[in-house]
Design a binder for these strands. Sequence first.
DNA 1: CCAGATGCTTTTTTT
DNA 2: AAGCATCTGG
Length: 688
Amino acid sequence: MISKTFQEKFNPSQQAAVSFTGQHALILAGAGTGKTRTIIGRAAYLIESGVSPSKIQILTFTKKAANEIVERVRSQFPESTAISLKGSTFHSWCNQLIVKYPNLFGASTYTVIDQDDQLSIMKMVCGEYKEDFGRLRLKPQQLIDLYSFARNTRKNLTESIRILLFKDRKDRETEYEITQQRPYIGNLLKAYQSKKGNSKYLDYDDLLLAVSTQLHQNEEARRILAMDLEHLLVDEMQDTNPLQWELLKPFAQVCRLYCVGDDAQSIYSFRGADFRNVHSFKERVPDSTVLKLNINYRSTQHILDLANWLLARSPIKYDKKLVSNITEGSFPVVMNVSDQWQESSWVAEEILNGFQQDDKFFGDHLVLSRSQYYTKTLQAVFIRKKIPFVTYGGRKFLEAAHIKDVVAVLRILNNPFDEIAWVRFLTFWDGIGDVRASRALGNIVAGDGSRPIGTLVKDALPGQDGEKIGDLIGELELSKGDVGQLVTKTFEAMELGLAYKYRKDWQEKRKADFEVLQLLAKSYGSLGEFIGEGLLDNAANLNKSHVLSGSELSPSEDRDHVIISTIHSAKGLEADTCFVLNVSPKVFPSTRTLHDPEAIEEDRRLLYVALTRAKNRLFITRNIDSIQALTKGDEIINEAKDIPTESYFLSDLPDSLVEQRTYEHTFDKPRDVGTPNTMDLSSGMDFS
DNA sequence: CCAGATGCTTTTTTT
DNA sequence: AAGCATCTGG
């Protein structure tokens, strides 16, 4: 049953992984060793062996990765053979299960909320419980972090407070402080939780928690899900956190687990990822096998030498040395620059050189940065030099303020208990602020849902304002069944207000987004789907993977452009030429992580991920002043901030591994490079 | 007490 | 770009 090309497509260890016949497997796959290929191959292999595609579920961390894997599997089969193969993110998968089995998980009408919404609720709570909140020197965001951390790591409140607020200290004074603060924090979190429940909100963690709790407690739930599922294929296993592990664990009893990961690429501990899910896999999962993939097909040996050198200097033993099957190639370049403008100019020049002289495409270039914010200068330079680009990471389409204003109406119609949406919608109108809105809210939400929404508003908000808004929402409710039409009408009703509220950049930037929103809305069958899945899936990643072309949303992969990405968002990406920005002291590792050895090592892995994205050419930039400060004035730095020199990842970098350069040009002379080809600058869109 | 405008600051990383 | 503190006009 196995296709002829099987042996040509995979090396022996990949073949072993793809055609694994045991019960459960963990595939340890170093960067560039064909991790994605192996998952794709595995799914295809299973289907060829007669497993029904509908009983295979692929889990990844981003929708993009899921789609890509599923598409590539489907393309290996005649038309509809693999159409029922499913791939989703953990969160979206749970959301689908909850929708599919409302009785099992006890949630029918609910709204999935994002981090902004969580914060808004917590702010309301802190306002209501001024007493408790006033005794703490905490921001609402920190309380949210605490809440989420505790649930994702399955730790109790005391431990979570200790780790997040007291750097994991265990001395007497800390103990005392924790005992003092814990009751107040506890009260606020409880209030937050009950408010969340009353408004029928599920946050991201709730989605996982609801499913995992039922699976653990309820034999029936396990039985039902077992009927749907034979194989669970999990990507990026090293990024799973204890909560996600809780979710996966029960499935070891009802289906076969096939997890793929690389402990050296674990970079999500800030949201509770625990790479012991990889290290302890064999002990935790009975009847499991661990397989390894070691040959790197992506990068030249020079690039891997640098990556290997970086990992070898870690106190953690990764038991990993990547070996390439590509021996030739140039050395990685470390470029010393004196400021961000130089850095950006140099990157732009290098890309244009590649484009003009080496026949490279813009798409062959990937620019990586630690933070989204840092690439602002670069984006400015790219626009000036007419280099087309897209940004990965950063603010999502549906999270932009002007989009949220319109979506608030949809949320209200979808779930009349949605207080956040109510406040947003009410305060949108002139003359209504926080106070009047929250007062009106009490009356609106108190309704049992039997009365028309429009009338509720009129009662809760006497006067002209209420009359106007009540009529509006009542009328919009009539279009509830047609998401596309609803968006159009809502936008029409709000356009004037929006244009005023965002007058600074309405015409140039924001107005056009509503076309996108309408197209997006049309692609969903129902309001509930749009609100729920839209937030979790492609809409959330719209700025990453889609651009508006003509009258439809199309994958931006069609166009040739440079990709600018945070390193976190770049996992799984690769490019011929890769720029890693600002690998300077105090950044790698970051000064904020220096108190914590584990966090330093996570930063090291982050850099490791960045370096291993490059196939042929790797360019690293760093700030020359901070390097000189390191070598000349150690004592100043050490004294000032207590930063040990050796904590900089690239200190003592052997000359044999890289080529060092220093930027010569002055950036002020933008050499006229002309316009290579016809390029569409609109692809340089993002919503930040 | 309320809504809105203005000026200042500050950015990790994401589902 | 968005949060925060502060001011102004009602």
